[in-house]
Simulated scan of single mutants.
Amino acid sequence: MKLALICTEKLPVPAVHGGSIPMMIDGISPFFSSRYELTVFSIEDPALPKEEMRNGVNYIRLPRTHYREAVANELREASFDLIHVFNRPLNVPLYKKASPNSQVVLSLHNEMFSEKKLTFAQGKEVLEHVSMITTASAFIKQSVIERFPEAEDIIKVVYSGVDLASYPPVWSKKGKDIRNEYRKRYGVEDKNVILFAGRLSPAKGPHLLIHSMRRILQKHKDAVLIIAGDGMTQYMEYLHKLALPCKEHVIFTKFIPPHEMPNLFLMADVFVCSSQQNEPLARVYYEAMAAGTPLITTNCGGNTEVVKHEENGLVIEHCQKPSAFVHAIDIVFLQPSLVKKMTRRARHRVETSFTFLHTAKRLDAVYQSVLNKANGKSMPPPLLQLPDLSFLKRLFAN
């Protein structure tokens, strides 16, 4: 049975440059390569060949310019039973026309059915061509249903996950060793480390964390804010200027390769996601929870579907106030017993619900439902564990 996974035109697969969708595809591909004849489409990258067979997965990489048309041409030449389109609803009619006998599953990782993204007529056309839609959170699912109520019966939430082998908890020997190594590397061995990780933009709110540092340093003179990520040049320049008064306590790392991110979470004493707008549900939550790093987030969008206040993290209601972040960070630094309970619960929740095995199983159930309904084809019995992902680590290391 032939399955195609079509990444967006933004980043290549494997996730040599990061990205939540490429990382998700990396995580589920080993599971599906043993069950399907699997092809993954993504854009070209100088670090990767245009086409290769790796660990049972056929990777086809196409030029970024006219990417959707190039994918459609590939689909015409093949005969896929099922095509999974990631986060590009407007491409669905083109792909369905290119391969009319294929079933199409569309996954949404942002509010791609909003009025800003497509017209009402375009949304109707997409719904006519998809067999099922999956969303990264219930928040995104609801945003689709509010505009297109008829879609309710074909939408399912499929949460993303992590590879637990890449995230030894900070209380384990391996986790402690990595933590000590990276704290020494960044010169923060004796510091209280606050981590922000993500795209640098006003909507993500890192400027609020910098604003918070003056008050945080009044009580915690050894606090350091590490800002990991890159973004818009003008905004990044603004952040650097904003940090000048406390420049010894703010470290900018720029882009961090995906294989390094688990180590940054282990290095940190608290991870803060300072989102200022409705978030679909960022994968950094799964990563922080897996590492056993205390987690602070805002009550925006789908964040609280995974993070529960004082259960496995802290949720800020007044996200536009630096004082709210100061208060939450103060709790983490001063209440170790609460932190211990929250981080253990967070790790347990990832182990039981948010690994890539869980993601693959949920997607597989969607695929099976679609194919059974279409032509009676059924899937092989599910695997009990996720295949070895060590080849991805070797790729990134090289």
Rank of each mutant, 00 (worst) to 15 (best):
Met1Asp: 08
Glu9Thr: 13
Lys10Val: 11
Pro12Ser: 11
Pro14Val: 01
Gly19His: 02
Ser20Glu: 11
Met23Leu: 14
Pro30Asp: 04
Phe32Lys: 01
Asp45Tyr: 00
Glu51His: 12
Ile60Tyr: 07
His66Ile: 08
Ala70Lys: 09
Glu74Ala: 07
Asp81Lys: 02
Arg88Cys: 12
Asn91Gln: 09
Val92Glu: 03
Lys97Gly: 08
Pro100Asn: 06
Val105Phe: 07
Leu108Met: 12
Asn110Ser: 15
Glu111Pro: 06
Glu111Lys: 08
Glu111Tyr: 03
Met112Tyr: 05
Lys117Pro: 08
Ala121Asp: 11
Gln122His: 11
Glu128Leu: 11
Ser131Glu: 13
Lys141Pro: 01
Ile145Pro: 08
Phe148Arg: 02
Asp153Cys: 10
Asp153Ser: 14
Ile155Val: 06
Tyr159Arg: 05
Ser160Phe: 09
Gly175Trp: 03
Asn180His: 13
Tyr182Ile: 10
Tyr186Met: 08
Ala197Phe: 14
Ser201Thr: 15
Ala203Lys: 11
Ser212Cys: 06
Met213Pro: 00
Lys219Thr: 15
His220Asp: 15
Leu225Arg: 01
Ile226Ser: 01
Ile227Gln: 01
Asp230Cys: 02
Gln234Arg: 14
Ala243Gln: 05
Pro245Gly: 00
Pro245Trp: 05
Pro245Ala: 01
Phe255Pro: 06
Ile256Asp: 12
Ala268Thr: 04
Phe271Ile: 00
Phe271Glu: 04
Cys273Ala: 14
Pro280Ile: 11
Leu295Ser: 09
Thr298Tyr: 04
Gly301His: 10
Gly302Lys: 00
Asn312Phe: 04
Glu317His: 14
His318Met: 12
Val326Lys: 03
His327Gln: 15
Asp330Lys: 05
Val332Met: 05
Leu334Val: 09
Thr343Ile: 09
Thr343His: 06
Ser353Ile: 02
Phe354Trp: 10
Leu357Ile: 12
Leu363Ser: 06
Lys373Gln: 14
Asp388Glu: 08
Ser390Thr: 13
Phe391Trp: 13
Leu395Asp: 06
Phe396Trp: 15
